[in-house]
Design a protein around this nucleic acid. Sequence first.
DNA 1: GTTCCGCATGAATCGATAG
DNA 2: ACTATCGATTCATGCGGAA
Lengths: 297, 297
Amino acid sequence: MDYLNKIFHGDCVDILRDFPDNSVDLIFTSPPYADQRSNTYGGIKPDEYVAWFMPRAEQFYRVLKPTGTFILNIKERVVNGERHTYVIELILEMRKSGWLWTEEFMWHKKNSYPGKWPNRFRDSWERLIQFNKEKNFHMYQDTVMVPVGDWAQSRLSNLSETDQARDESKVGSGFGKNISNWLGRDMVYPTNVIHMATECGNRGHSAAFPEELPSWFIKLFTKELDVVLDPFVGSGTTPVAAIQLNRKYIGIDVLEEYCIKSEERISRCQIPLFSIAEKNELNEYRPNSPARGEKER
Amino acid sequence: MDYLNKIFHGDCVDILRDFPDNSVDLIFTSPPYADQRSNTYGGIKPDEYVAWFMPRAEQFYRVLKPTGTFILNIKERVVNGERHTYVIELILEMRKSGWLWTEEFMWHKKNSYPGKWPNRFRDSWERLIQFNKEKNFHMYQDTVMVPVGDWAQSRLSNLSETDQARDESKVGSGFGKNISNWLGRDMVYPTNVIHMATECGNRGHSAAFPEELPSWFIKLFTKELDVVLDPFVGSGTTPVAAIQLNRKYIGIDVLEEYCIKSEERISRCQIPLFSIAEKNELNEYRPNSPARGEKER
DNA sequence: GTTCCGCATGAATCGATAG
DNA sequence: ACTATCGATTCATGCGGAA
């Protein structure tokens, strides 16, 4: 398996042909939006977007395990005063080719950039579309539980400012562990709305998402040592999140400059990897079988 | 214009045929979602939903002014483990018949229905799809500005329910007094994400959406004395919101029981209408032009 | 006259059971 | 095999009664 934990330079439709069938547990990616980053990626025209995407989706389908999940982060751009339809056309087209459209998560970008137009407000959300090959995909819901929303309201009516801060951050923070230790409150399952701020410090990539975003889905749909693929890896956020969570990664990008940038970022986070490995050894002493969770069939 | 400020009993596709062209400024509605069971509204099957909706959309198009807006509140149901595609198919079909798909707002329902399933989380958002006939529709952005900061924003949204002057007890002693403090502060434009809780305290009435939801869009897309149409009026939330904001309303529902319920609710809020009229007279003494800023309150 | 707590109530979804 | 019905699951919200 020497294709694991590497960044590949090239078009994912070509690179993936050398990969085996049913070998990836999660595909998480944010492809170049239509015409949005034309200076870097060569700009796919909105009307040609579906035709451009589908051959790649076919490879995604092939390499994904039957129990795996494909999360597509995308948003239609405004063309000529209208929202373009390439995203919803893509959903229909992927269903025709066998994908199941299981769910559509909504990412509420809390700090979207300010701006004013005469006929629309700031765009403050993006789609995270969940596709699957089969209905019985793996889902580890307990890994993303959040504190119950009630505690601030029922407990501290005086600290209104801080309870608002808690409310905003409760779903957004990537590691429920920290919050759970924070007060040891009861935990509840999240919803399909994800509140996260966009990445402020742009890492030299034109469409970076916060690390918490892939982290959330990696925890939800994979277990340790599973394989996470990002076929449009960009600045390497998905591999970094995978490493932090002790998953294996595959990154692909058509721009060599991004491949280099990703590898640099990945090399800088190898140290946390060791500590996670040590924790793994400890985990082997735990009575619970780690592969089981207590949910998904 | 004796068709104004009335509730009509019947199928909107029939009722609207008697209405003149280009006579409505805003259509705000939440149609019966596709339902597999056929008990209440006759249960439109998901596969037949687009075909059922389009003749009605054709009438909507005819009666809407060229500068008007159509806001459609809808959400696809889960069918056989997948999100059904009737909503996105409807968007494509409406564009084919001339509608512009200008924008898609997100309604984040803070109190979504509870439940736990092995393969999905609670559904916590709905679509508010904006359609227009022409690009130069009316939009009064200044009427929905919000104070800077999430804290003030959430507080103010809670307050606006009670500023309809029905229930003074909730906020009367607390933040309500301080609301005037915020009116002089910095205001910013909102985004296309709307955070609101659903109505859950109403016994007997199954108000699908809170009054504040139509209020927000009525303020955004109409001015005083404009005409607001809800062709699936249900319990009458949209007309009530229109009355509170001094707009004219038209309500239609196929179920007589809902028509009666709407008229009862409307008659109960006629008294606040007088007080609004009085406030309007007072407003004329204010230095600000009353037609512009945020006077309805 | 406030504050606080109990409780009913949602545009839900899945899986099993029954016809 | 396919459709219809039912029970179990689960949590933010707002009202009403009590302290």
